[in-house]
């Protein structure tokens, strides 16, 4: 159980959009139990920009997978959109992902055979009920990330930075409560990294909640809050003065 759990950022009147309570994650590796997460509690508020840092094996990827509803905690609660999603079945988790979460990955994870605008539209295919203005929305988002001129391009015709912009537009298309970014600049050069971080900043300033995993301190420094993990526990929470 983490003692720093109570030191979560002050609520300051903003709504809590996601909240993990005492989550643990146990893996069995070669007959031994490994605590990837040993009791973590965090609240994420509307408009937060949180960077999760930690060395390899600190549990940051596990935490991100739990936050992304790609995995379930062994124990503990995860409140998202007013529900405890820690106990949901596979189908409901899929629906929760499609409804409340946006993903940005290190390796962009665009679908190669689809064009820019089609990639942006992928999450819309899984919306219930379907969004009638989906196409117009995709065009707006492409414009927002500066790719209006490349709507018909395939991912392999784009630079890394452009691909990540497509991925960000895709993460916005379902109007998620939280955007989860896993090393979003990990595959990019410094100049492009700055561009991408500027874009995330802009989104955050517009009210988007962003949770980002990174191991680069200068990238983490651009978040409002930095949470450091160590051995599956929260080691420190720092508030950046931005």
């Amino acid at each position: 159980m983490s003692s720093v759990a109570t030191e979560a950022p002050p609520a300051s009147g903003r709504a809590v959009v996601a909240s993990v309570r005492n989550v643990t994650k146990l893996y069995r590796l070669g007959g031994e139990d490994v605590h990837a997460l040993a009791g973590v509690s965090i609240d994420f508020h509307q408009g937060d920009f949180v960077a999760i840092m930690g060395s390899s094996g600190s549990g940051k990827s596990t935490l991100l997978n739990l936050l992304g509803c790609l995995d379930r905690p062994t124990t503990g609660q995860y409140l998202l959109g007013g529900n405890d999603v820690a106990t949901l079945d596979d189908e409901s988790l899929s629906r929760v992902r499609g409804r409340y979460l946006g993903f940005v990955f290190q390796s962009y994870n665009l679908i190669q055979q689809l064009s820019v605008v089609e990639n942006i539209a992928v999450p819309l295919a899984y919306q219930r009920p379907p969004n009638p203005d989906g196409h117009a929305l995709c065009l707006r988002l492409a414009k927002l990330v500066g790719l209006s001129g490349r709507l018909g391009h395939r991912p392999n015709q784009l630079s890394g930075g452009q691909q990540q912009r497509v991925a960000i537009a895709r993460a916005l298309v379902n109007n998620p409560h939280v955007i989860l970014a896993d090393e979003p600049t990990g595959n990019l050069d410094t100049a492009t990294s700055i561009e991408i971080m500027d874009l995330l900043d802009a989104l955050n300033n517009a009210g988007r909640t962003i949770v980002m995993v990174t191991h680069e301190p200068d990238i983490a420094a651009r978040a409002k809050t930095v949470i450091s993990l160590r051995d599956g526990k929260i080691e420190s929470i720092t508030h950046n003065d931005r």
Binding site: L70, E91, S94, R97, G98, R99, V122, A125
Partner: peptide, 10 residues
């Protein structure tokens, strides 16, 4: 994997 992450059910 991508489609599952973006909300596709089994």
């Amino acid at each position: 994997g991508i489609r599952r992450a973006l909300g596709a059910t089994k």
